[in-house]
């Protein structure tokens, strides 16, 4: 019983990590109708930059300065990455109006980021000590790391913060207007290109923050973003892009199924159920569990 509880808690935390990055996918999808395949590597960039500003890579000891440094570093990196991805991959792709230019363009950006980090920084794996320490709490016999609690809290703040920004401010409403109907939005005087760019900056910044938060729970490495990025993408699709509810449900499905499979079947198979569920969901509901069906007009 206790074990199942532990699996559910750990799985949910994993699911929230996925959901947080998936939230980044949704933000840019709603305004640009593209998926930014480099987002996983942007998250990795957050982990690596946070690490470099906090830990000495050679000794593994702390550099000794405040945690504020990595936080600021990660925010700046996110904004730069978001602007660059929009400028060099998304904007030219949208101009071409091709069905899949953006897929390859963002994949290419992801490859460039990863390769650059490998060459400039390191190809190794490093441990990132949590600023909150590594002693787990015990709640009803279930262990939770303080870093995990921090992650859940920050993720909740980010999601609610962005959602209320969209709901209650005029700029947020403008973002929603652009995602619903670009042309009419521009008839309201809303500069749609700027809105798209802002969504990419926001999305990349969320990803780098996620990288900083996730790093102490895993290892820091140039490849830490690849599979996380793909799984978060899967989560946003299971839930249905543009659906907030879907993110959480999708994240929990994937996270918990992973932990159950790892515990009761084999850790090698832990990713399998999630991806099988994904394919089944798409077969039954082509736009995800909570996605809106698009009506094509002739």
């Amino acid at each position: 019983m206790n074990q199942i509880f532990q699996i559910i808690v750990s799985g949910s935390i994993q699911g929230i990590i996925y959901a947080l990055i998936a939230f980044g996918y949704n933000l840019t999808f709603s305004t640009s109708k593209t998926i930014n395949f480099s987002l996983g590597n942007v998250m990795m960039l957050g982990g690596v930059i946070g690490f470099s500003l906090y830990v000495d890579i050679h000794s593994g000891n702390l550099l000794g300065h405040s945690y504020l440094f990595p936080i600021i570093g990660v925010l700046v990196a996110g904004m730069i990455a978001g602007t660059a991805i929009h400028k060099f991959a998304i904007e030219p792709s949208l101009k071409l109006k091709s069905e899949f230019t953006w897929v390859l363009a963002t994949l290419a950006v992801g490859i460039i980021i990863k390769n650059a980090v490998e060459q400039i920084w390191s190809t190794g794996d490093f441990r990132f000590p949590s600023p909150l320490g590594d002693v787990p709490f015990r709640i009803f016999g279930t262990g939770i790391y303080p870093q995990e609690i921090l992650l859940v809290v920050v993720a909740t703040i980010i999601v609610f913060g962005v959602e209320s920004f969209k709901k209650y401010t005029i700029y947020g409403k403008a973002i929603q207007a652009v995602s619903e109907d670009k042309e009419t939005a521009s008839l309201m005087g809303i500069p749609q290109h700027q809105v798209v760019r802002i969504s990419f900056i926001l999305s990349a910044t969320i990803a780098t923050i996620a990288g900083l938060l996730v790093a102490p729970l895993t290892f820091v490495s140039a490849s830490m973003g690849s599979s996380l990025g793909i799984k978060a993408y899967a989560v946003s699709i299971i839930g249905g892009l543009e659906s907030g509810k879907g993110l959480v449900v999708g994240g929990l499905i994937l996270g918990i199924s992973e932990f159950f499979t790892a515990r009761y079947i084999s850790s090698g198979y832990k990713e399998l159920p999630g991806f099988i569920i994904l394919i089944l969901v798409i077969l039954i509901k082509p736009n995800g569990l909570f996605g809106k069906t698009m009506i094509k007009k002739v």
Binding site: I170, K173, Q176, A177, E180, D181, M188, G189, I190
Partner: peptide, 18 residues
């Protein structure tokens, strides 16, 4: 071409965006 997913009030406010 109203913004179907937003409230009536929000639609009006968006009209005054500039």
């Amino acid at each position: 071409k109203i913004f179907a997913q937003q409230s009536v009030l929000d639609n009006l406010i968006l009209g005054a965006f500039v």
